[in-house]
Write a protein that binds this DNA or RNA. Structure first.
Lengths: 214, 214
DNA sequence: CAGAAGCGGATAGCAAGCCTCCGCTTACCG
DNA sequence: CGGTAAGCGGAGGCTTGCTATCCGCTTCTG
């Protein structure tokens, strides 16, 4: 239960592994193997498996921090007096992080990766988004039929673009973010009625939680 | 080289295989195995492999038709006098097809699946989209900075939503299509300048052609 | 009814990824 | 400095999932 103090070389290798993992997750996403990580860190596979029982543990160790970053961005966005500005800033920054870190997109959308600690952290993001949206609706700077869960799906949609244009046109997603924001901004008289109601928090959670692919 | 006329039972089984493949592609996407297909068709694996050398051949046989359908929709959209109407119709119909057929999304975005025939067919779609967009720009019913390649990326983004909400909220993607269309429609004075230029046809082609995932 | 054509599915082959095991090396403490 | 527990490395075993073949049996067709 208590921590066994690591030998110096062991501690060094642990750091190396974490660094390597972080780089690999950022550039290739979460489905790299512990072998890949060990190799990049310049240590043997055995070492990697002695330090972390499996990939989950590495993810858990690394992504709690990343998600805290997202939370921080959301908090900052809430300090903006213009609520819509805050919302836009949040989206831009959060998507920018996802652009810089492929693994982040995956961990935000697939909760079977990572475990409790990460999951709890992720769950703390939702209420912040609610506030962000509610404020903008009060200020009437966003279309009234906009819902919190819409934020999630827009991020998901743009993440798909980010993912496919990462090398060739890394900024392209901002083009579509802008177009879409133009469809959101109020005041304006001619919004097209939305054909479907937004998903509730529960339903959205189900989407996030469902098994991926087939 | 010349066709050997199939025995009656063989021909029947070939049809069954094609039907089964079509169903499976629609509901599970393209990464089903020939074994799956054979099983669903109620024939042995051997039969499947005797009829089709590999999955490519089945895909090729089936998806040329599906792509022809998309072409037909595009042509029809071009007959509409209101160009924007046509464009919207095209998007709705084409996305609806993608909603109903998971494999279609994959084949439209990943050209290493399917071979020449399918690829040629896919290439015939692009010029139609150009026309669709150009007409709308001439009629000034769409924002002037809109480009043809934008259509592709919007479809890609919405396809991501379709894919994740297929069972739970099959219509949800229409919500985001509508919002996005509200950001596109002209005349209107307050379009936000787009931060990035659209991709050229060549660049878009590269995005489509690049290897997928890692 | 002969025999060519077709059938089926067990099974070999292959590719990836996960993880363990064990002989060797190294840091640490007295 | 020397003994020893801790740590190291990576070959290789195991599993999973898919591809593709082979060959004894069945069925169609003339």
């Amino acid at each position: 239960m208590t921590e066994a103090p690591l030998r110096r070389d062991a501690a060094r290798n642990r750091e190396r592994l974490l660094t390597a993992a972080s780089e690999l997750f950022a550039e290739r996403g979460l489905n790299v193997t512990l072998n890949d990580i060990a190799h990049r860190a310049g240590v043997g596979v055995g070492t990697a498996y002695r330090r972390f029982a499996n990939k989950e543990e590495v993810i858990d160790a690394l992504f709690e921090q990343r998600l805290q970053d997202v939370i921080a961005v959301a908090h900052e966005a809430l300090t903006s007096t213009d609520a819509l500005d805050g919302l836009v800033t949040f989206l831009e920054r959060s998507l920018h992080m996802q652009f810089g870190n492929r693994g982040l997109t995956e961990i935000m959308n697939s909760p079977q990766l990572g475990r409790e600690r990460v999951n709890q952290t992720r769950d703390r993001i939702a209420p912040l988004l609610t506030q962000l949206v509610d404020r903008a609706k009060e200020q009437r700077t966003i279309r009234p039929d906009f819902e919190q869960s819409d934020l999630f799906f827009v991020q998901m949609a743009l993440a798909a673009i980010i993912d496919s244009t990462r090398e060739l046109a890394p900024d392209l997603y901002r083009r579509y973010l802008t177009m879409w924001l133009d469809g959101i901004r109020s005041p304006r008289s001619d919004f097209t009625p939305l054909p479907t109601t937004a998903l509730s928090a529960d339903q959205t959670h189900k989407v996030v939680t469902q098994k991926r692919r087939s």
